[in-house]
Amino acid sequence: MTDSVDPAPPPETFQAFKDSFFYGSRSNLDFKFLADLSETEAGEFFTGLLTELSQTINDGDGSRLVDLARVWQQRAYTAHLDAKTAFRYDDIPFTALDKPLSGARIALVTSSGHFVAGDDPQPLGVANMSQAEAEARVGEFLRAQPTLSTIPIGTPSDQLVVRHGGYPTDAARLDHNVVLPLQPLRDLATMAVIGELAPRAYSFVGATSQLRLRDTIAADWAATLQADAVDAVLLVPV
């Protein structure tokens, strides 16, 4: 007779462990860059993390952990994503602002995936999609057409919803202004640094079909902003 006990699963490799932070079993969008690091680099990251954490246990200062995460994120994206960038252009479309900032009407457009409660863009035909589902289906988002959500500039923060499968949205849930800076813009209008804020801001999910966006949709959105009679646009990518 053969032994009926299932053999133990093979131990998880370090490669599989670090890659699991990229939309895997340990998905964490703050640390999805681990998949872009070599095993040696990832080992260096974890060793550094624990070394710094030891210091934090002594003095309670967590800022060194923030610095470590930020620096490694930059290192990973600069080294790996730059090389993979598919879209490179030699020309630089440029329009000068022909008035002072204090006389200009400014609009805000972000790729943060915000919308107003009750105005769900229903991506992929799904109503009330969760953040977890957006992360799980990010590959489908990258092939789909983006929707531009309209956000009246006076929208109370508790009426704002954010959902985006491509970046860590927890900071935006704590304070939408980190990616959708409505309050800073309202303040600058009050301070007369800008002439006025356009009545509507706009947001879309930046994880989207780049070709559709580039070849047709972005020009349509430009017409939308022109209809709002804006003088200039502040854009916030995520």
Binding site: Y77, L81, F87, T95, A223, A232, L235
Partner: peptide, 29 residues
């Protein structure tokens, strides 16, 4: 990249723009 495409289209349409990018994506602009 999405905002890069939007920013280029807006400028081409005659709308001045400025974007706030993080250092990790400095290569994009």
């Amino acid at each position: 990249m999405s905002v890069g495409h939007v920013q280029r289209a807006f400028e081409a349409a005659g709308i001045p723009t400025v974007g706030i990018y993080i250092r990790a994506f400095e290569h994009v602009p």
